[in-house]
Amino acid sequence: MKLKEKLIELLLQLFTSVTIFTTIGIIVVLLFESISFFSNVSIIEFFTSTKWTPLFSEKHFGILALASGTILTSLIAIGIALPVGLTIAIYLNMYASKSFRKLIKPFLEILAAIPTVVYGFFALAFVTPVLQEIYPNLETFNSLSAGIVMGIMIIPFISSLSEDALYAVPKSLKEAAFGMGSTRFQTAFKVMVPAASSGIVISVILAISRAIGETMIVAIAAGQQPQFTLNPTIPVQTITSYIVQVSMGDAPQGSLEYQTIFAAGLTLFVFTFLLNSFSFYVKKKYQEKYE
């Protein structure tokens, strides 16, 4: 009996350790292939060149060309999702009636549950043509359409996490502000948002991290051309869509082409790891604020 209990505990411990091995696995795989990559390509070129052409005969390995695509699409996405998501959170928390909130929240959840490949198709087949009506010079593949749709996809993340943060602010603060004669707008922006700021910041960081790692929308709608640019109307390639492009082909193991996706992946992993760590730090630091 005693032995059985012990064995079960050991088994559960083993299952838990899978999570550690996952992290180790990610780091080892990314580093292992990246080290071979950097034995062939100089790190200086990787971080300073603005051309990314590993699949051409004249090869350049400047991650900036891919990073700029990632940053551009993410900026557009956050530019949409932050104001809209935060406004929705404040509206639902401060203005909307309970019944309206109950009605609307499932729809926002659905928005978050739609597979990203669907959003990608929506961007390419529906949003881009509409944008082209307004701005005819917009190319078929562009970061504007991909960024906008990605923004729509992450609205629910910001709105629901920010609303949770606003909801966690003690009711007494809201009452104090109302009691002083504040309008709902003043209460929201002078009291509630500052008090919930750490939660809101975390929601935005997670949204950024989500946008940077998003793959299918950009792979479908933003194009496959690495360009060091901030022009939203032309095709770009992000780190993620480059990995997809190479994976759709058949890069033999050990080839430089094969290694590039791990070097690109490592860059992406570091990006998101830093963002996630920062949000974790914010959470820990401000958690005590209201006990």
Partner: peptide
């Protein structure tokens, strides 16, 4: 809002803003 400037309120638990 105007009414509440004339009629102030102090609550059960101290609730200063952070």
């Amino acid at each position: 809002e105007e009414l509440r400037k004339k009629v102030g309120m102090v609550f059960q638990k101290p609730n200063p803003f952070p």
